[in-house]
């Protein structure tokens, strides 16, 4: 059963140096507050997994928290580059970053395999692409029924998956809706699951298209209103597109980035 914890306690208890951590949310419901808590606690040497690293991983990478990144599209959506990600890959600043790079379809299926506790997933993918040459988690498999050669992608099973959701009840049952991305698969693929929520309610009201993660599939729930900002939580907030645009000049410059992180993350709580 999920325990209701403070964000600080939940992060300290669930996430350790060297862990493989997936913090999912496809543009929507990105768990920024939990990432900031990881930075404040000085947890390091993480393998970070996320389809779209987004500004959340730009911040973690720029703070030197990650040694490896597993991903499929590393840009600032609608704005341009993730400059801290680029600086780490191109120049090794603040530390070198190993990459395991996929397509979205491949990553989505890696989570499906992980949630299913299968060793790999199959898809029609990567055909003719150079991507398999750079990854040890893409191979081919021959269909035993038709003989068709298909792409095989290794399962992703994070030590910890962190997601943000709209609501939980006091038992720790979690409800999220809107763009639900790959969060259910990422949560069920992980050994431990931390969910930050906008609101803790007495009773979860059924909501159209909602995903419910039962309490017994979740390790800890933390009440963190606006914990997805500058991403958003449908029904509670809208995406702060101005912040995503403002991030471009902040993150271009190492000193400007560090100053921003000091002021808004390290010295905040």
């Amino acid at each position: 059963m999920a325990e209701i914890r403070s964000l600080r306690d939940a992060v300290a208890e669930l996430i350790h140096d060297g862990d493989t951590v997936a913090m999912e949310g496809f543009t929507h419901l990105i768990p920024f507050a939990a990432a900031h808590e990881i930075i404040r606690q000085g947890i390091t040497d993480l393998t970070l997994v996320r389809m779209t690293p987004d500004v959340i991983y730009d911040q973690l990478i720029g703070m030197g928290v990650a040694r490896r990144l597993v991903f499929s599209w590393g840009g600032n959506p609608g704005v341009g580059s993730l400059h801290r990600f680029r600086d780490a890959v191109e120049n090794g600043w603040p530390r070198p970053l190993e990459l395991d790079e996929h397509s979205h379809a491949g990553m989505a299926n890696r989570y499906v395999a992980g949630a299913s506790r299968l060793p790999f997933a199959v898809l029609r993918g990567y055909r003719g692409s150079d991507l398999p040459e750079r990854s040890s988690t893409i191979a081919t498999v021959t269909c035993p029924f038709t003989g068709e050669e298909l792409a095989a992608v290794a399962a992703v099973n994070p030590d910890v998956t962190v997601i943000h959701a709209q609501r939980a009840d006091r038992e720790g049952n979690v409800q999220l809706w809107g763009l639900v991305g790959v969060q259910k698969e990422a949560a069920l693929a992980a050994d431990r699951v931390l969910v930050t929520v906008e609101e803790i309610v007495e009773k979860l009201e059924p909501t159209p298209d909602a995903v419910v993660l039962p309490s017994w599939a979740v390790t800890a729930v933390a009440h963190v209103p606006d914990g997805a900002h500058p991403s958003y939580a449908a029904g509670y907030s809208v995406r702060d597109n101005e912040f995503y645009q403002a991030w471009d000049p902040i993150s271009r410059d190492r000193e400007a980035f560090l100053a921003w992180m000091r002021e808004h993350v390290l010295e905040a709580s």
Partner: peptide
């Protein structure tokens, strides 16, 4: 025009919203 592929308006105005594995598979 949405800034990102995940702006809320894309979901709010959609006929259906499905998971990422579903959209691709």
């Amino acid at each position: 025009l949405p800034l990102s592929i995940g702006d809320g308006e894309l979901a709010d105005t959609a006929d259906a919203v499905v998971s990422v594995p579903e959209i691709f598979n």
